[in-house]
Structure formats: C-alpha cells, structure tokens
C-alpha cells in the first residue's frame, strides 16, 4: 500500500489542533450533556482503538471484546467494595487478569479463522455473561453499586485516589480523554513498529506471513494481550464513572458489537478510524436516543439499524475511506470486481 500519510509538520499541526480543541472545549462549554457525550466519545473511541489493534491491524475479528471490559470493570469494583482498594490498583489488577485470560483463551481460539473466530469470541463473552449473572459473589444479575466517597461530614466528595468525582463531570472528561490518549499512543507506537508490520502481514495473508518467518501465533497473541489490557483499563474507568456495573451492560453482545461497529464505521485498520467513528456515531446515537427513544418505543434503534445497513452498503471501508471517493481517479483499474471477490474469499478461507 502507498504511504498516504501527510507530511510530518502538517500531521503535527493537525494533532495539536485536535488536542487543543479536546482540552479547551470542556472548559468553555460547561454543560453536563456535552460533558457526558465527550466522556462517552472518549470511552468508545478508546475501546474501538483497542479492538482495532486486533481486528483492524491483525484482521482477527472479535465480537467478544466485552469480556475484557467486564473483567476490568468487575475486578476494580469488587476490590473496591470488598477490600476498599483504590480503583487505580484495581485497574492494574483488572488489566493483569484480562491478560491472563487472554493468554488462556488466545492460543486455542486463534487456531480458528474468519466466522469461526468471531463466533468463538461471542461464545466466550456469553459464558462470562451467564456466570456473572448467576454468581452471588459478584452481585448476580442485579450487579454492584459502588460506594460514594464521603468527607468527614458525610457529604459526597471528590477524590483522585478513589477515582470518584461527585461535584462535576469535568475530571471524568479529562480522564476519558487521557485514557483515549494512552490507547491512541499505544496503537500509534504499535503501528509504526515491527509489530504493526507483522500484524498487517498476518491480516493480508497468514500463510504467506508464516512462510516468510512471521511467528503468526505469537504476534496474534501479542495483539490480543495489548488489546485486552487496554479494554480492561477502560472497563475500570467506566465503572468509576457510572458507579455501577451489571453483567448485561459490561459483558453483553451488544457492547461487543458496538465496539467493533465504531471502529468499522471509522475505518478498521486505520489509526484515526476508531476516533472518527466515535466522534460521529456516539453523538448521533445519544441524540436519537434522547429525541426519539422515549417511552421505550425503540424508534432510535430503528434509525440506528437503518444507519448501520446504509454504512455497510455505501461506505464499507469506513469514514477514513471517504477521501478516496472524492479524489480524482488517476488510474483506471481493470476489472475491479473480480479481485475484491477473490480477496474476500481468501480472507474467509484462510
């Protein structure tokens, strides 16, 4: 593939502008709905980027990433409720647990390809969902509420150590953006390192990659480990933001699908696709929910479903593929349908 990156000074300027906007607007627009939307954008962009490392870079489609999210959310929450441990330490424990789980399931699951892999990941997350719904120790189907941090007089208070802010959403906004920044940096470093090259080689043709000496199984596992740790970290943050976790929300198939959807809408495999996808999809979903979703009519989901179909049909390459459409054609490609067709079959068979 041709290197389509912007020249370095331009990229840096664009990056500075994006970061500048993200840092200043929450201060300028002091509005709870706006802050909430920003937090969700940060969370979903980070989740989608974590998915992208495995699904986009390495082409290993997971529809079960919620399992790591749930592990992160539950580990820190349980440690907080049962041992009064700070969520910072809980996050580390959650990430470690998620990585152990990734190690256990990674090797066997990666023997599967294509739809078999996707369905196996669904099955894994569903097992976790059923177990968490039925284990009383972790709160069962009702979930766990986190205790509110209080000061000496018993009033709700803010605490960085307990990662809880009751007076304003602003710290959560910056935390969400911070988490997103961390995941984004991790993905960028990966993308530019040899690991990124190996992952792309695996995505394009696993057999060929193995033939030229790429340790396929090991690098798939590395991608999964990084992806799972990032996802678990976001899970802890999410639990601290809502101060509540329940199995259906954190382990459910709909979360796994939404994570993948955000990345795909933006452009799977591209570095800024997940962020772009979240910026477009999350406010849209929030707006339709608040405008149309009242009284449980599900009309917002009708629109949402239609939208997904429209994207799949008209822009299957995602938003980052849009400039290609408007770029003047330089070369006329010969018989474009046939190669795309064989490529698809290859990717499914491999």
């Amino acid at each position: 593939m041709l290197d389509r990156r912007l020249p370095a000074p331009l990229t840096l300027t664009a990056l500075a502008v994006v970061i500048g906007i993200l840092v200043t607007t929450p201060l300028l627009i002091n509005n709870n709905v706006f802050h909430h939307t920003l937090i969700l954008i940060g969370i979903y962009a980070a989740l989608a980027q974590a998915w992208n490392i495995l699904g986009g870079f390495a082409g290993q489609i997971s529809l079960g990433n919620a399992i790591f999210f749930g592990i992160g959310a539950y580990t820190s929450s349980l440690l907080l409720v049962r041992a009064q441990l700070s969520p910072w330490l809980g996050a580390l424990a959650g990430m470690a647990l998620a990585m152990v789980l990734a190690l256990l399931i990674g090797y066997p699951v990666f023997r599967l390809a294509g739809h078999y892999l996707a369905i196996a990941t669904i099955a894994l997350a569903e097992i976790a969902l059923v177990v968490f719904q039925n284990l009383e120790f972790v709160g069962g189907a009702a979930g766990i509420s986190l205790p509110i941090t209080r000061d000496m007089q018993g009033r709700p208070t803010d605490s960085w150590w307990m990662l809880q802010f009751n007076s304003s959403k602003l710290p959560y906004v910056y935390l969400a953006l911070g988490v997103l920044g961390v995941v984004q940096v991790v993905a960028t470093l990966l993308d530019r390192s040899w690991i990124g090259f190996f992952l792309r080689a695996i995505k394009n043709d696993q057999t060929a990659a193995a033939a030229i000496g790429v340790p396929v199984a090991r690098y798939k596992l590395i991608a999964l480990l990084i992806s799972s740790a990032c996802t678990a970290l976001i899970g802890t943050f999410y639990a601290q933001y809502l101060l509540f976790v329940d199995p259906e929300t954190v382990f459910g198939l709909s979360l796994s699908v939404l994570i993948a959807l955000v990345a795909i809408l933006g452009g799977a495999g591209s570095l800024w696709g997940p962020f772009l996808g979240a910026v477009v999809l999350i406010p849209l979903a929030e707006a339709t929910r608040s405008q149309l979703g009242g009284r449980g009519t599900a009309f917002d989901l009708v629109i949402y479903g239609l939208l997904i179909m429209v994207i799949a049909v008209f822009q299957p390459a995602g938003l980052t593929g849009l400039p290609e459409r408007f770029r003047p054609r330089q070369r006329t490609s010969v018989a474009p349908a046939a190669p795309a067709d064989t490529q698809m079959e290859e990717s499914l068979r491999s």
Partner: peptide, 14 residues
C-alpha cells in the same frame, strides 16, 4: 463483494 466486516454489519443492522 464488500469486506467480510461490512457483510457482518449489513445483516446485523438488519
């Protein structure tokens, strides 16, 4: 003839 991901999401959206 779209990528496998787009196919998954087309029917999922439906």
């Amino acid at each position: 003839n779209a990528p496998a991901l787009a196919q998954i999401f087309a029917t999922f959206g439906l």
